[in-house]
C-alpha cells in the first residue's frame, strides 16, 4: 500500500477540524474590538474558551491551545515526525532557557524556569532533570552533542550570542534532517522554505545593525533552497534589490512583493508577514488532496499562524496600534 494511503483518516479528521480554526472574519472582529477586554471576549466565544480560566493570562491559553493541537495530532497521525518538526523549535527554546539559567546561577542570578514551554517534544521536567544531571546522551535532535559543546563554549569565553548561534544552526539542521527522513516532498519544501525565511530575516536584521558580510555568513543556516554563499553578497545591496537578485528562487519571488519604501521598522514587519505567508503557500496545495501528509503540516502551520495573529491583535490593543497597521500584519494562515 502506498504510504500516502495511510493518511485517509488523518486528512478527513483535519477537514472536520477546519471549522474550528479562526477565519479572517473572526480576526477582523477582534481587530475591530474597542479594547483588549472586548477582543478577549471574542476569543472566549471560540474553542479557546476551554483554556481561558478566570484570571489566567491569554498567553497561557494560546500555548495550551497549540499544545492540545500537537497532542491530539500525535494520537492519530501515522508519522509522529510530522508533529515533532513543529516541536523542535520549542525544544531548542527550552534548552536556551535552561542553559542561560544555569549560566546565570553560577554568577548568583535567578533561574528562569517560568519561561519553559510545554510545546516541545521533550517534557520540561525531563529536560530539566537531564540537564541538571548532565545526562545528555539520550537527548534527540543532536542535543546530545550540542549541549556539552555549548557548556564548554561557555567555560571558554562565556559568549551567549555564539552559543545561541550554534543552537539555532543545530535546530535548523534537526528540522531539515527530520523533514528529509520523512520523505514527503511538500514537507521537505516547507522545511527548506522555513530556513530560507529565517536566513532572509536574519540578513535584514544584520544589515540594520551594520554587520559585515563575513560576520553575517556565520549567522545564516544551510539547508535552504538559496545557499549561504548566494545570500551573503546581498548584505552590500539595498533591500529593494534583494527580490531581483534572488528572482531564480521561490523565496526571491515572494520578497519581491514586499513594499520596499519606508525604514527598517516598516520593512521588517512586512517582510516577516511575507515570509510566513510564503511558508504557508508551500503546503497550501495539499488541501486539494484527500491523502497528502502535507495536510498535517498545512494545518499545524496554519494553527501557529492563527495564534501569532491572535497574539499580534491582543498586543496591539495594549500598545494602541492603529487598526490598519494591525490588519497589515495578519498572516494568511490556513485559509490562504
Amino acid at each position: 500500500m502506498p504510504r500516502n494511503d495511510a493518511y485517509g483518516y488523518a486528512v478527513a479528521r483535519i477537514r472536520a477540524l477546519e471549522p474550528q480554526l479562526f477565519d479572517p472574519s473572526q480576526l477582523q472582529r477582534m481587530i475591530d474590538a474597542d479594547d483588549s477586554d472586548a477582543a478577549l471576549k471574542i476569543l472566549a466565544e471560540s474553542g479557546y474558551a476551554r483554556w481561558m480560566n478566570e484570571g489566567a493570562r491569554y498567553d497561557s491559553a494560546l500555548e495550551a491551545e497549540l499544545c492540545a493541537a500537537f497532542d491530539e495530532f500525535a494520537a492519530f497521525v501515522p508519522d509522529r515526525g510530522l508533529i515533532d518538526i513543529f516541536r523542535i523549535p520549542y525544544d531548542f527554546h527550552n534548552v536556551k532557557v535552561l542553559l542561560k539559567s544555569a549560566f546565570r546561577a553560577r554568577t548568583g542570578g535567578k533561574k528562569r524556569y517560568d519561561l519553559l514551554t510545554r510545546l516541545g517534544s521533550i517534557s520540561p521536567d525531563d529536560l530539566v532533570s537531564r540537564m541538571e544531571s548532565e545526562e545528555y546522551g539520550l537527548l534527540p535532535w543532536g542535543l546530545s552533542v550540542l549541549l556539552p559543546s555549548c557548556a564548554s563554549m561557555w567555560e571558554q569565553n562565556a559568549d551567549i550570542v555564539e552559543i545561541e548561534r550554534v543552537l539555532d544552526s543545530g535546530m535548523f539542521a534537526a528540522v531539515i534532517s527530520l523533514a528529509d527522513s520523512l520523505e514527503f516532498p511538500g514537507v521537505i519544501s516547507w522545511g527548506r522554505a522555513r530556513i530560507d525565511s529565517e536566513n532572509i530575516r536574519n540578513l535584514l536584521r544584520m544589515k540594520r545593525f551594520g554587520f559585515d558580510a563575513s560576520a553575517a555568513a556565520s549567522f545564516l543556516h544551510g539547508g535552504g533552497t538559496v545557499t549561504v554563499a548566494a545570500l551573503v553578497p546581498l548584505m552590500s545591496d539595498q533591500f529593494e534589490a534583494w527580490g531581483r537578485s534572488l528572482a531564480y528562487s521561490d523565496v526571491g519571488a515572494a520578497i519581491s512583493a514586499v513594499e520596499a519604501g519606508g525604514d527598517f521598522d516598516e520593512q521588517m514587519p512586512a517582510l516577516e508577514r511575507t515570509l510566513d505567508d510564503f511558508c504557508s503557500s508551500v503546503v497550501a496545495n495539499a488541501r486539494y488532496s484527500s491523502t497528502a501528509p502535507e495536510n498535517i503540516t498545512a494545518y499545524l502551520w496554519g494553527k501557529e499562524m492563527e495564534i501569532k495573529n491572535i497574539r499580534t491583535i491582543l498586543v496591539s490593543k495594549g500598545t494602541k496600534t492603529n487598526r490598519e497597521g494591525v490588519k497589515g500584519m495578519m498572516r494568511r494562515g490556513y485559509f490562504g
Binding site: 494511503d5 485517509g8 483518516y9 488523518a10 486528512v11 478527513a12 479528521r13 483535519i14 477537514r15 472536520a16 477540524l17 492519530f76 484527500s290
Partner: peptide, 14 residues
Amino acid sequence: GIANEAAAGIMTED
C-alpha cells in the same frame, strides 16, 4: 476501506 477511513475521520469530530 479507503472511503471508510475518510468517514471515520470526519465522524470522530462530527
